[in-house]
Design a protein around this nucleic acid. Structure first.
Lengths: 255, 255
DNA sequence: TGTTAAATTTCGGGA
DNA sequence: TCCCGAAGTTTAACA
């Protein structure tokens, strides 16, 4: 599990350690200690000297954590080059990528701990409650949106994006359905509006296209915007915002 | 720096370790080893048995990393309760929060390493290249958007959101400016459209309100959408997508 | 608390 | 590669 551990490594020792274990790409590498971090790319940042935790995963992704918060202080999702070297008597780590051109530089002023861990086995990961799952369910039970609704297509691509559900109502009118797994916002209304326009543009002039936003709830401003644009909202209440373990009850949507 | 380190801890030892160091809230705690993770909240997930790295920061935030990717496999940004206990002869960690109600459960089947680190000093952090900075710059140099433009306000709140820059052109017409630090998308066009409508609704009927999207570039579909809605695009090219160190040259925007 | 929008968003999918 | 959209997005700001 622990491939290698160094306490208070010298600059050249840390440099070798980093280059060795990042090259093999089979370890999760971490270094904790006093460091300085700078980033240049889509934006630019500088972190003054402080105690940070640097993580380098097997795919070469880099993240630098400060004492609080879920998000790293600095990061590099993918690195095209990851190299450590001794510079002015300290170990310096450079993580760069092209597209976008970005570079993160870590200067280890006083590394206290360097650790290489083997994190081999990762089991399966299963997520439920995604919008994709909601789409799957509603595509097979469109009456939950509206009685008589017939689904013609899913993920239909138009110039302005992908339409979640494309359908026809009991009067033969085309219906564009936009799904949200959580509370629908003005953003969702804009999306729906764009899709409705795109579909209208493909049909003979004068065709009526309905737009339905289907979600467990909707914000006040979104509702106003929606109604002013002649679009509709359908509450999908059986979508459990917090799936609760239940016994002897009938399973809700998505279970 | 290293407050405590355990190798292959027994369930009760790991439990004590976790409860002790998370209670004091002055350490970054990590556990690496075989585990199972499940989550219930806005969605639900299960991670089968595998080797993971669990990080618990001083603010009680929890993240569980698998071998690749910048994002944790599971996480809990804020925990209202963080408690470990021995359950069926293994150590189980529960991290829960209200609002939204969510819980992450980690079952440590075979912990190999438990580490408590002191990450005390964090230096200052400075980021440049944000949209806020772009706004600051353009508010003082609106001629970069258009000659004769006068800024009337920033972050002006209307019902549909916050207008980045509110201005008047050399002919006295009101101008709503939406800024993007990167390539502008259809989403940005929608925002701008909403703001223009909101402003029009506040002015006497028939008032002309211009909408300008100011960004370094714009996607093709966004440009079409923009033009079809009578809105305008202004390229802000001096926004350096990659701020480069230069010598003897005149500093660009934002430097 | 509710809503909106930014973010070095990341990530995945389709053309 | 470009583009769009989901995400357990997170985070901050503001009414």
């Amino acid at each position: 599990m622990i491939r290698e551990q160094l306490i208070d490594p010298a600059p050249d020792a840390l440099t070798s350690f980093l280059n060795c274990h990042t090259r093999t790409r089979d370890c999760l590498v971490q270094v904790a200690g006093l460091a300085e971090v700078s980033y240049r790319g889509r934006a630019a940042s500088t972190a003054e000297i402080g105690t940070y935790l640097v993580l380098i995963k097997q795919d070469g992704s880099l993240q630098i954590h400060h004492p609080t918060g879920i998000k790293p202080m600095n990061w590099q999702p993918k690195t095209d080059e990851l190299v450590a070297r001794v510079d002015e008597d300290v170990c310096m780590l450079l993580a760069s990528r092209r597209s976008p051109v970005e570079i993160v530089q870590v200067i280890f002023l006083q590394p206290h701990l360097a650790l290489a861990l083997e994190l081999k086995a990762a089991g399966g990961f299963f997520l439920s409650g995604s919008e994709a799952q909601m789409q799957e369910t509603l595509a097979h039970a469109p009456e939950l949106i509206e009685p008589g609704l017939k689904v013609l297509g899913r993920e239909l691509l138009v110039e302005s994006g992908g339409i979640d559900l494309y359908a026809q109502d009991d009067q033969g009118r085309y219906v564009v359905v936009e799904l949200k797994r959580g509370r629908a916002t003005q953003h969702a209304v804009s999306q729906l509006g764009r899709y409705v326009c795109s579909v209208q543009g493909k049909l003979p002039a004068g065709s009526v296209v309905r737009g339905i936003l289907a979600a467990p709830s909707i914000t006040g401003p979104a509702r106003l915007e929606l109604e002013s644009r002649g679009l509709e909202f359908r509450e999908i209440s059986s979508w459990p915002s917090v799936p609760v373990a239940r016994e002897g009850q009938q399973p809700s949507l998505f279970e």
